[in-house]
Design a protein around this nucleic acid. Structure first.
Lengths: 145, 145
DNA sequence: CTTGACATGAAAATGATTTTCAATTACACT
DNA sequence: AGTGTAATTGAAAATCATTTTCATGTCAAG
């Protein structure tokens, strides 16, 4: 774990504590795993990864921890076609993702401004747009043929 | 059911038959329901709607029929935040959706061309982008406060 | 009208997620 | 440091959407 990572882990733990959550063993391990992963992880993946160092972990705790982290905006959900979710550290709130369909590696792409599109669409449809969801899927450089 | 709707239903049934599927009672009812719905429907909703006129229907048949219709591009999946799916007739292949978060009414919005964004992102990231997914969420005119 | 392949419905299986509950533990307050 | 309490945990059971299995039914080709 790099210093950078340790630093981030501490940031997250502070944020959690500041919001009234208790800092526990399982929590720390899950946070560490998420902070240091370059890919989006599913609950079971996190479960398995953490158990190699903390075998007592319960899968339920993973779900509950993910809920907390998402509530604080520390992680972001990645939606998969099959309906399951994976989770990725969110460096700056909600952003647009580019997901590798082969290895799962995720990259943020400069949140190209959707506001013009959104404003135009609001005008055309009469809807009050509250949220949006943009994800691109493709092959990352190392998975390209 | 308007003439327009009947016409569309027949189109769909022809397409299905042309692709080797058999035209059955349950199939007809499900197609009718989907063709005439202005909102995206979930499997259970379709199940309930159809059973008011065809009480024998099995939920499994709904799933299997949705599979066929999606394979032919006649319907399009609407992804929900909870991971469940709803289905909407696709008038012209894959398009971008604007979903009302209150009543579920769905509108297509002019498939604003994402190609510039996609090309730029490919160049920046080195990914080979294969697919995208853009949905907007908001309140439709009749659900606005 | 016969027939074989595809379609159906019921029940059971699966897989992800949630709930329940008793036991444990963090941490605020002595 | 010691204690009380409410938050957190893990295991097991419950739930919910979806899939599989299988015996029966039915479409449509001949």
């Amino acid at each position: 774990m790099t210093e950078k990572t340790t630093e981030l882990v501490n940031d997250w733990l502070e944020r959690l504590q500041a919001n009234g959550y208790r800092l526990t063993e399982p929590l720390r391990h899950i946070v560490e795993t998420l902070v240091s992963s370059p890919r989006a992880l599913g609950p079971i993946e996190i479960y398995d990864l953490v158990r190699t160092r903390y075998p007592n972990l319960g899968l339920v705790t993973v779900y509950r921890t993910l809920e907390k982290l998402e509530a604080l905006g520390l992680i972001q959900r990645v939606h998969q076609d099959d309906g399951c979710h994976r989770y990725l550290r969110a460096t700056q709130g909600h952003q647009h993702l580019l997901v590798c369909t082969r290895c799962g590696r995720v990259v943020y792409f400069a949140g190209d401004d959707l506001s013009p599109l959104i404003q135009r669409t609001e005008a055309e449809t009469g809807y009050a747009i509250q949220d949006h969801w943009l994800q691109l899927y493709g092959l990352c450089p190392s998975c390209r043929p």
